[in-house]
Structures are given as structure tokens and as C-alpha cells.
Amino acid sequence: MKGYWLIIGTEISDQEAQAEYARLWKPIGEKYQARSNPTKEPPLLVEARDAGRMVVVEFPSLEMAKACYADPAYDEARRFALRASNRVLLIFEGDLGEPE
């Protein structure tokens, strides 16, 4: 069964921090075989309060999703993500299906 991160965040308030997060994320995502927004139809963000965006990140397994989050390299990247916007990150197991 696959592992996922669901990230729900406010609009980006610090573009430089977001760009640095993206730069640091790229090799981390590759290391853990992560795919961002893997489904053909993204989840709908409803009853969002302050949230303005949502990202789904798919991993080959729940163990890889957890290992990625625990990786010291991601800890560094996460600091930039948290400067860029307020967000909530959930880790869960499931199968959202393959895009057509």
C-alpha cells in the first residue's frame, strides 16, 4: 500500500523561502520516489478557513513517507516551507489509484 503526505496550507507569503524549499525538495523527493499531485482529479479543498492550497505527495509505501519526513535533509527543507506559509501536513496510507 502506498504512503501519502497531504499538505494543506495558506497562500505563499514568502516566495524566496518557497523557492529554496523547492530547490531542497527536489533531490529529497527523488531519493524517496515521491510524486506530487499524482491523481488525475485533485482533492477539492472545501471548508478551508485560511487554507488556500493543497498538495498530495505519493510515496511507494507508508514507511518511505515516514522516512522522508524524518530525513535530516527534509528537516532543513521544512524550515523554509514553514517560513513560506502556514501549513498542516498529514501522513497516511492508502491507494488513491493511478491517473488515467
Rank of each mutant, 00 (worst) to 15 (best):
G3K: 13
G3S: 14
Y4P: 01
Y4N: 01
W5D: 08
W5F: 04
W5Y: 08
W5E: 10
L6C: 09
L6F: 03
L6E: 00
I7H: 01
I8D: 03
I8L: 10
G9E: 07
E11Y: 02
I12T: 15
I12D: 02
S13I: 15
Q15M: 15
Q15F: 04
E16I: 14
E16N: 13
A17T: 06
Q18K: 09
Q18M: 15
Q18R: 03
A19W: 02
E20Q: 14
E20A: 06
Y21D: 15
Y21S: 06
Y21F: 14
Y21G: 08
Y21W: 09
A22D: 12
R23A: 14
L24V: 07
W25Y: 13
W25R: 03
W25Q: 11
K26C: 05
K26E: 08
P27L: 06
I28T: 11
G29C: 07
G29V: 13
K31F: 08
Y32P: 00
Y32A: 01
Y32Q: 11
Y32W: 14
Q33L: 11
Q33K: 12
Q33M: 00
S36V: 11
S36K: 14
N37V: 06
N37H: 09
N37D: 13
P38H: 02
P38V: 06
P38E: 10
T39R: 15
P42T: 09
P42A: 12
P42C: 10
P43Q: 10
L44R: 15
L45E: 02
V46F: 15
V46K: 10
E47D: 09
E47I: 13
R49S: 02
D50T: 11
A51V: 00
R53K: 11
R53F: 00
M54G: 11
V55P: 05
V55S: 02
V55A: 06
V56I: 14
E58G: 07
E58R: 07
F59E: 07
P60W: 05
P60R: 05
S61C: 09
L62R: 12
E63G: 01
A65Y: 03
A65D: 10
K66V: 13
A67N: 13
A67M: 05
C68P: 00
C68R: 04
C68Y: 01
Y69M: 11
A70L: 10
A70W: 03
D71Q: 06
D71M: 11
P72D: 07
A73D: 10
Y74E: 10
Y74R: 13
E76L: 11
A77L: 11
R78Y: 05
R78T: 02
R78V: 02
R79Q: 14
R79K: 15
R79E: 14
R79F: 09
F80V: 07
A81C: 12
L82I: 03
L82H: 08
L82Y: 00
A84T: 05
A84Y: 07
A84H: 06
A84G: 02
S85L: 07
N86P: 01
N86W: 06
N86A: 12
N86T: 04
R87T: 15
R87W: 10
V88G: 04
V88H: 02
V88S: 11
L89E: 00
L89A: 13
L89F: 01
L90Y: 10
L90D: 03
I91D: 08
F92P: 05
F92N: 04
E93H: 03
E93L: 01
G94W: 04
D95Q: 02
D95C: 02
L96H: 05
L96I: 05
G97P: 06
